[in-house]
Design a binder for these strands. Structure first.
Lengths: 356, 356
DNA sequence: CTGAAAGCGCTTACAG
DNA sequence: CTGAAAGCGCTTACAG
């Protein structure tokens, strides 16, 4: 019934007149040394000649190790995730592992369903890029004994191993940059508060301002990391901070009064904000400076090229996968580690000195 | 030794005082109807109570079906692929399948190695988005009896099932648009000739021009679908088509003489071309019109928003996965099908009438 | 260094 | 409708 009927370890054994357990040993790099040079040679030759291909499904059953890891991410179509996934896959690949990936933004239940199916496939661990703060099922998952490592986003309590970017620092870099340019009234387009990044960046934003003796000019929370949400958020920011008289409201079209710069929770939000600003004929950075977060691919070529905070997407994925792999090998401590990566300011053309 | 020790079909059987084969049947939707309502009820209850989770690895061994499919793509970091992969995963997910994905652009041998490993994992089929024209191993793979479906790119001979965009039509749409705007001297930044898309679009470009009684003003072949290659290609185009005298060469900086519009093999190439053009102070579309291909995410927000040809990325992935699934179910004809999807012209701001 | 046996957790003819 | 048995292709103590 096997799809690739192929030849088995028993076929080899029979052909060589040895026992299949001997073949099994000869084939496993770990136990190869137990076998005589002569047998080794003959097995190798036969393997090559017959095109033997080990059946991992069978090995998985007997060892309990599937050499697969489950990866949960909201949506691979969001440009933040491809480089993360690439990092994950490169790390896994080096150890002979495969990723089983699921997009979980389909519906609320998607993560649970995906985990269920992955467990049935007997993945050895989970890499989760879609954590929300206080996800009860995350702890439940951990409780099953599964190895789980969070990427990019942490859960609220933070007692799961994770690899993230230093979001507070990221915001500090953005705010320092704007303050240095002369801005004093700075607004924030925050990411969703139920995501650790949304929360951490918002707090980071406030703290960074505080260090300069400033407080937020305005904050609007976007309900997603998306252009649409960024667009809506920017509109809201413009409305609430608009002066009251019709006359000054007219002026506001080109010169927003409440703030001279805005820090976006991420680049997608910034992109949406940019669209709103263009529709309102508010020049960036002439009338308003805008800075994003993430340095997503090709964001350097939008109009205007976006200043942003670069996070180490690929590294994040790679390190997270390494961490999971280490935990699977029982490396002590790998289950209690959180790795925080340094982001970096990238100044392009969307930030400039405020109008005086 | 099993990682998730979990409970097995035998545990359930013992607990309920029935044979494990009965439990096996009760659990399988396909064979459920063979079982008495009473036993069904008791099995269901026990399953729920004990949190039974079927072991796919075991099922895979006995049925030969792993419920996984291998996906080969050059690099998930190239923005064309996430929507394709998303389509694939959605289709697979609906049938309870997972994708094992490999990025094959690492080195020349990567595809072969990936296929080897996937075969060891006993994937049931392959979805290949990284085909090159005349890939000998593709046929070899097919010869093993594996189900293989090509996505986006075909192999040269074209006797493998595939889901692609109508590349000839895509080029026709682009050329017709430019001609309609008044362009007569149109150049092409071709994709690599060893990729079916590069070849088909180049031919499509030439044929479309021919239908208007025109011939190519210039063609430069890029050695990859990347910004870098597009940048280099554009430079080459500018150089070869530059007039000979120093004086006219100076003019050429703002008004290229050999052509008034260029059709890029894809958006990444167009993006690179745009950078080269900006460096040379050649206004788009003022001095030169530029149109891309693919309508990749966020290309609408570059400077200037790129006119392009939209291909159905997601659909392509989805249909390809469906095709593979159908072939796995032995649906006749699914192995000899090529699905060609219609692209669509998207006019934005990078194309305009030629200078007179 | 090698063999024989048991087992991993399912599925599937074959009987009844 | 249910049971008993064999088997999928490996791995791994246990002997020798």
């Amino acid at each position: 019934m096997a799809r690739y009927p192929g030849i088995t370890i028993s076929d080899l054994a029979q052909r060589l007149g040895v026992h299949k357990s001997t073949v099994s040993r000869a084939i496993d790099p770990q136990r190869r040394h137990l076998i005589s040079a002569d047998v080794l040679r003959r097995v190798d030759a036969a393997v090559r000649k017959l095109g033997y291909r080990p059946n991992r499904a069978a090995a998985a059953l007997s060892t309990g190790r599937s050499r697969t890891v489950g990866v949960l991410l909201p949506d691979i179509t969001n440009p933040v995730f491809p480089p993360i996934l690439r990092g994950i896959e490169d790390a896994l690949d080096a150890e002979g592992y495969f990723a089983l990936v699921a997009n979980t933004s389909r519906h609320d239940d998607a993560p649970r369903v995906a985990v269920e199916r992955m467990l049935a496939q007997r993945v050895e661990g989970f890499l989760i890029a879609s954590a929300t703060r206080d996800d009860p099922w995350l702890d439940a998952l951990r409780a099953t004994g599964a190895v789980v490592v969070l990427v990019n986003r942490t859960s609220g309590d933070g007692h799961l191993p994770a690899v993230i970017s230093d979001d507070m620092l990221g915001m500090r870099l953005a705010v320092d940059h704007l303050v240095e340019l002369g801005h004093r009234r700075i607004a924030h387009l925050a990411g969703p508060a139920w995501l650790s990044t949304g929360m951490a960046r918002r707090i980071g934003f406030e703290q960074a301002l505080q260090q300069h003796g400033l407080s937020p000019a305005a904050i609007a929370e976007c309900n997603a990391y998306s252009r649409e949400a960024g667009h809506a958020g920017m509109l809201q920011l413009l409305k609430t901070s608009a002066p009251q008289t019709a006359r000054s409201r007219a002026r506001q079209r080109s010169i927003p009064r409440g703030f001279s710069a805005v820090v976006a929770g991420n680049d997608l939000i910034a992109l949406g904000a940019l669209q709103a600003l263009q529709q309102h004929n508010i020049a960036v950075p002439g009338a308003l400076s805008l800075i994003g977060h993430n340095d997503m691919p090709f964001i350097d070529q939008v109009n205007p090229p976006l200043s942003t905070v670069r996070i180490q997407h690929y590294e994040m994925g790679f390190r997270a996968a390494r961490l999971a792999l280490e935990a699977l090998q029982g490396l002590p401590g790998s289950n209690e580690t959180t790795i925080v990566l340094r982001p970096q300011l990238v100044v392009r053309a969307s930030t400039g000195p405020p109008m005086r």
